[in-house]
Amino acid sequence: MATPAADADFKTKLQTWVPKLVLSPSLALMLVFVYGFILFSVYLSFTDSRILPSYGWVGFENYDKLFRLRHWDIAVNNLIVFAALYIIICSVIGLMLAIFLDQKIRGESVLRPIFLYPMALSFIVTGTAWKWFLDPGIGLEHTMHLWGWESFHFDWIKNRDYAIYTVVLAAVWQSSGFVMAMFLAGLRGIDNEMLKAAQMDGATNFQLYHRIIIPQLRPAFLSAFVILSHLAIKSYDLVVALTGGGPGRATEVPATFMYSYTFTRNQMGIGASSSVIMLMTIVAIMVPYLYSELREKN
């Protein structure tokens, strides 16, 4: 409803203002705490802030330093490896489980919650469980040795070159069930009569999935990609709980980098600039997605 005529009665006038008034506190909170804060952080990233915010303008110096830091290099590389593997493996496992579950499986109602429950856990809990499970001295390796498989060797969590893959493993464990649920919903939404028609046309099961069903899951793929990539970039808790960024700096990611530079190393300017880079990455992924979603709706 647009603006009322000038001679509108009181009730009509009131009704055009009340909704806006109701929305305004939320909007104000958002403007200050999200957009205002983003501006403030961006501003700080151009200052010489150390332990506390200070307002000496240093231009791009922080970014310059940031990109020269080996520590940041490691964090970015780790994030790329982590995000790529996390998204791909979650999608593959999620799609596979969804397709399998969609074959009129007996006990689906038991299996589905089992696949999904890790999503209800905190990353800290997940980290605690996997940290120990993967600990060679006491977890899986130790148990295998006790069972007589002496040559079994699995110490990735202690190994600089492989530790990041344990983060992937734990993260996949936590999120793949969720991707499964998204794909399953997509599969259940596909018109069964169309599949029957395709079978009449002589399509095999594989062709059915490859040519007809999976292409129609495009929206689910897109949603999964967006959500997983955003979880990956924000990942902080899991790394802290599982490896603490170690061994050494082997599993540092931008989220842990930002936290340690800002709050423990007192390099707030650099910390702020790293958070700006993180935001820009998310913006590059989210804005086109949200734009297309919202435009479609109207």
């Binding site: 009322p4 005529a5 000038a6 001679d7 509108a8 009665d9 009730k11 009509t12 009704q15």
Partner: peptide, 10 residues
Amino acid sequence: KSMNGVHPSN
């Protein structure tokens, strides 16, 4: 009576 701006319920 002109109804312009009059609330539906009125």
